[in-house]
Design a protein around this nucleic acid. Structure first.
Lengths: 169, 169
DNA sequence: GCAACTGCTTTCAAAATTAGAGCAGTTTTT
DNA sequence: AAAAACTGCTCTAATTTTGAAAGCAGTTGC
C-alpha cells in the first residue's frame, strides 16, 4: 500500500499505524473480545468486510502489531496474537473508552467494559496487560488472571438484564 | 457525509469522530502549535490539502469538537477554538505520543514535545488543559500559564541545535 | 458422504482523497 | 492609489480506498 511516511511526529506515526476506521476495532476485539481467528473477527459489532479485514490483518502483521501462526487444532485455522506493542495500547484504549463514554451517545451494554476499565484505573490496566502477555506471548503470570473474564461477565449481565427488562416491558 | 453510527461502543464512536488520518493532526496543531486560522492549519508538517482541511474543520465543528468565529482584526479571517471535548483529548494525545515515541521511528525534533509531556505526567497535562481553557474558552487562570510556550521552546532548541550540528558537520 | 466451516480472494461499483488552480474579496506595502 | 500579498475556502479531474457480496479450495465433524 503506502509506505511513505508523512512526518516523524509520534502522533502522526501512531496514526499511520492504526489511525484508520478499522485497525483499532480489530485490536479492540482481540483485547476485549478475546478473538483470535479470522472468522471471529469478521463478526464485529460494526460489520467489517472480509476483504478489509484481510487487508488490515496483513498490514498489522507487517507493522509488528500482530503475529500470525498456524492453529495446531485445525489445519486451516490461523491464530493471531497481540505483540507487546499492541498490549501497550491498553491504556490508550481505556482512555479512548472513557472519553467516548463522557462525550458521545454510547450504548449501555457496549460501554460497561469501558466503565469498569475507568473505575479500575491503571492498576487494573496493568493486571490486564499481564494477562494479555500470558495469553498472547506465553508469559508467566503471578496471581489469578481473569480481568477479561470479569469485563465479559459485566457485559453479559447488562445484556441479560436488558433482555429481562424488554420481556417485562 | 455519513451520519450512520456503526455501533454504540465508546471506542467506535470516538473513532467515528476523530479516527481518520487528519482530524487528530488538525487538533494536534491547534493544541500544541497554537494554530487558530485556516491558512495556519494548512501549513502542517504532513501537508494537508485545502479541500480536506475545509471538510474536516466543518465536520469537527458540526460534532462539537471545535467552534468557529469571526476574527475581529480581519474581516476574512475565521478563528477556530477548541471545546472542552477537544481539550479533554490532551491525555490521549500525550499517551499517543508516548506510545509512538516508544515503538516507532520518530524524529528527534518532532518528538521532544511528546517527551516533555511524558515527563511532566498528569500534573503537567492538567496545567496545559487549564491553559487551553483560558486561551480557547476564556476561562480564568490561576497561576502562570505557558506550558505550550515551554514545549515550543524545547522544540525550537532542538531545531537550533540540529542546525548548529549540521553547520559544523 | 455431506453439510458446515476455514481463511481468505475476486469483482465491480461507490465513495473518499488528492494536488493544484482559482476566486472574490481584504489588507498591507510601496 | 496601485500593486502585491493574504483571506478562507471551492472546483475539477485523476487516483486510491472502501464496501458488499459471491465464491473457492480445502478441512472437519457427524
Amino acid at each position: 500500500m503506502k509506505d511513505d511516511i508523512r512526518s516523524g511526529c509520534p502522533i502522526n506515526l501512531s496514526l499511520e499505524v492504526f489511525g484508520d476506521k478499522w485497525s483499532l476495532l480489530i485490536i479492540r476485539d482481540m483485547i476485549f473480545g478475546g478473538k483470535r481467528h479470522f472468522r471471529e473477527l469478521l463478526r464485529s459489532q460494526e460489520g467489517i468486510s472480509s476483504n478489509i479485514l484481510a487487508d488490515r490483518l496483513k498490514m498489522l502483521v507487517e507493522q509488528g502489531m500482530l503475529t500470525k501462526a498456524d492453529d495446531p487444532t485445525h489445519k486451516q485455522k490461523a491464530i493471531y496474537s497481540l505483540t507487546e506493542m499492541t498490549i501497550a495500547l491498553v491504556p490508550i484504549m481505556a482512555q479512548l473508552g472513557a472519553w467516548g463514554r463522557r462525550y458521545l451517545p454510547v450504548s449501555e451494554e457496549l460501554s460497561i467494559r469501558a466503565e469498569q476499565m475507568e473505575n479500575g484505573g491503571p492498576e487494573l490496566w496493568d493486571r490486564f496487560m499481564d494477562e494479555l502477555r500470558h495469553d498472547h506471548l506465553g508469559a508467566l503470570l503471578d496471581g489469578p488472571p481473569r480481568v477479561r473474564a470479569t469485563l465479559q461477565a459485566a457485559y453479559e449481565e447488562v445484556v441479560a438484564r436488558k433482555a429481562r427488562e424488554k420481556a417485562t416491558a
